[in-house]
Design a binder for these strands. Structure first.
Lengths: 341, 341
DNA sequence: TGCTAAATGAAGTACGTACCTCATGTCGAG
DNA sequence: CTCGACATGAGGTACGTACTTCATTTAGCA
């Protein structure tokens, strides 16, 4: 019993192939009663469209673009690499993906790039960007032209994106806080919090979540104000070193951003006290730090998963299909020395 | 510039379509020099076979079977559900998947089921089973007949399986141990370890890993002998209750198996002391326990991921393709109250 | 009843690849 | 030089679906 085809539908419904095709592809010119009959038969015989054959016939190909900041830290290098790998892979299934890297912290340039995109030949865009009014408008324009827009990594809650692919950063901050709270136990200590900058929405949310759980569940722990290092490794090393020297009672460090090399340097230089450290993103630096025992835990989001999920979503949106919700859920992963690989 | 087709190869190489086809599908009757020339052109013009069209022409369809124990605990119910979902999904891409549920702990019945499988129409099998000599032989037989065999969840290291999809359970045990060690701090305590049975390879390995890290890094902690509850919820409740009553100095519990309802009952009944609890597998029970603060951490393997990965592997094996290694890596996930979803 | 607009059918081509048949070309061994 | 083995070409059909064209039937309405 081979799987039923359009011919079987036609035969069973007593109509011609042309009519079946009109129903299947929602073309006009079919009486409602006939549509109904064909639909019934489709259901009855369990017809399932062969998407491969359909795409072949339709000469369908997908054009997707990833728009990401042109930062060069380990996390963004990794992101870039993962997208490149996806590009290679996607050649086999009629999908063209390109990367547009835009200057970070320059909404104007970003909008200019978005305007450049040719929405005629474009099916989907996955974008990581801060949410400004201009960007919101540019996204709206793309959506109006039928382009599927997916936010990745950093949410755009007030924009008209189809979906967001990434973690809940408030929960990520809470998770970091819970870990440190449990590691530290009941004695009062200070926690040093450091970040790249507090402009990025994801960083702000992590701090929010961190503060919230600390207040709720670990009121005996004193969370210091955020030290901002502006994505500068040397500056971070200096600031952390100074902070630790000034307050030896600091019992733990929470690193909100993904750049950690300066932090690692500062921590390894002066190691009189055992301090608990939780950081974000698994990179070569943070992996080594976990292995050396400099970091105790890393909160991670799987970049490969994010990229693949975004591609699946753009494709599903273009086809008007739905997908497996659980597969698209990006998890807040807790990585310790023992579950590193 | 549309993507190159077989016609473009033929044109550029100055040969006929028939020859191109012979080269592409490794059919005999082509001079080595010609093969070489065609290969070069393929590389030059960047030809990539349209697998959809190829499968269509080839009338290819995949027949896969999942062989799993017919246990009814939450974890296995979940596993069953995930496979069923995959079955529904797979209809669209010419893939037929079926489930064979075999009595647990009955290698004879398992082998009988394996013998029944018709290797003529079968392309791949994903199996979760203990490794006995008979099962090893049955797997060998299937492989010899050209069936791709994938081990899932519980490893079969001495069998001739193509791949194993699942976590490293020794590392999972070490991760649990590390968490408890860090939660407990420096004061000496006892840890109660409970399991379903110590027959299953995965459980044994978890215990191994747990003991190893405790000896190495937390020698001040006393790990008690494993309490076996034989997958019996009531028995577990009773045994745990008795153990906790007898030794109030127990500061933590490590639950190796996936069935946790008896444990939760025993723990909630008597709650004088704050005890750290780490368990395995995220089910309704363990999720609720995390939310209530009865469990502190759950070590999880993503069943949906495992099943999808096994399917991708069976398909890749059938096609002689390779796949994205990082996507197939099953992670040892640490789930706390704050990163539950 | 006749007219018009809408509904339906018949039959094709195309997509990119697989696979088949048969004719023809080429080369080396005897 | 001839024969046979092997290499290659030409041209086809098929897979399941999309989409087109044009002819024909049916329904609605005056």
């Amino acid at each position: 019993m081979p799987r039923p085809t359009v011919h079987d539908i036609a035969k069973n419904a007593g109509v011609s192939l042309a009519t079946v095709d009109r129903v299947l592809n929602r073309r006009p010119g079919v009486r409602p009663a006939t549509v109904e009959r064909v639909r019934e038969v489709i259901h009855e015989i369990g017809y399932i469209r062969d998407v491969a054959a359909a795409n072949l016939a339709r000469q369908r190909n997908y054009q997707f673009v990833f728009v990401i900041p042109d930062l060069t830290s380990a996390f963004f290098t990794q992101l870039n690499g993962v997208i490149s790998e996806a590009i290679t892979r996607s050649l086999v299934d009629r999908t063209d993906i390109s990367i547009v890297r835009v200057p970070a912290n320059d909404p104007h340039a970003l909008v200019a790039e978005l305007e450049k995109l040719d929405s005629k030949s474009l099916n989907g865009i996955a974008i990581m960007a801060p949410e400004t009014p201009q960007i919101r408008d540019a996204i709206k324009r793309l959506k109006d032209q039928g382009v599927s827009v997916i936010g990745i990594i950093s949410d755009l809650p007030n924009s008209d994106v189809d979906q967001f692919v990434g973690i809940n950063n408030i929960a990520a901050g809470r998770t970091a806080g819970l870990l440190l709270g449990m590691f530290l136990g009941p004695q009062p200590v200070d926690i040093l919090v450091i970040a790249g900058s507090m402009q990025a929405r994801d960083h702000v949310e992590r701090r929010q979540g961190f503060d919230a759980i600390m207040t709720e569940q670990f009121p005996h722990i004193n969370v210091l104000p955020t030290v901002e290092a502006w994505d500068d490794s040397h500056l971070m090393e200096e600031l952390v070193g100074r902070a630790l020297a000034a307050r030896p009672e600091i019992g733990a460090v929470y690193s909100i951003a993904s750049g950690n090399s300066g932090l690692v340097k500062a921590l390894t230089k002066r190691c009189p006290v055992r301090r608990f450290v939780v950081a974000h993103e698994l990179t070569d630096t943070s992996r080594a730090a976990l292995e050396n025992g400099v970091f105790d835990a890393v909160i991670k989001q799987d970049v490969g998963h994010i990229v693949r999920s975004a591609i699946r979503m753009m494709r599903a949106n273009s086809d008007g299909r739905d997908l497996i919700a659980s597969q698209e859920k990006i998890r807040i992963e807790v990585v310790l020395k023992e579950n590193l690989n």
